[in-house]
């Protein structure tokens, strides 16, 4: 499963404006809801925050992947942002987060969600990829970095 086809240039923000976990989740969600009417802001935010309560999505190494399965959406939505300063995200390694991926999946597409989370969490363990992402200046850079990485490692 490739990540790059899910990247949407309008749902990538560099740098993120907020500096708090919940605000950053909201900020990334806004990118999606501003473009796609089927994503309900309130319900989705609630689901994302509920998921954070189970266990943090700050997986360490300056990366967080907030995510949720949502009943009334028909496709996968993906947003990405880079925080200029590290953000406190209750991360497993206590380190501040800079790279934030937000994933929304239709409720019944559990296997898609598992595949995306598994692939993405493996990706971001690669220090070289994280370094390249941190250097990105805009959404085109992000899409290019991901596409190139996937072409090289998962073609």
């Amino acid at each position: 499963m490739r990540i790059s086809p899910y990247l949407d240039k309008d749902c990538i923000k560099i740098p993120l404006e907020n500096e708090k976990k919940h605000h950053i989740i909201q900020e990334l969600l806004d990118l999606i809801t501003e473009k796609y009417d089927e994503v309900d802001q309130e319900i989705t935010l609630q689901s994302l925050l509920e998921r954070e309560k189970i266990e943090t999505t700050g997986i360490g190494e300056n990366v967080a992947i907030p995510h949720a399965r949502i009943k009334k959406i028909q496709k996968v939505y993906f947003a990405f942002g880079i925080a200029q300063k590290g953000v406190e995200f209750d991360s497993l390694d206590q380190r501040p987060v800079r790279l934030v991926f937000l994933i929304l999946c239709p409720e019944k597409k559990v296997n898609t969600q598992i595949g995306l989370l598994a692939r993405l969490s493996r990706f971001v363990h690669d220090k070289r990829l994280r370094k390249k992402l941190l250097k990105c200046q805009n959404s085109q850079d992000v899409i290019r970095v991901f596409t190139k990485y996937e072409d090289k490692h998962f073609s």
Binding site: I54, T57, I59, A68, I114
Partner: peptide
């Protein structure tokens, strides 16, 4: 594996 904690129901 914390990133999959949301899938406990599944």
């Amino acid at each position: 594996i914390p990133i999959f904690a949301g899938l406990r129901d599944f």
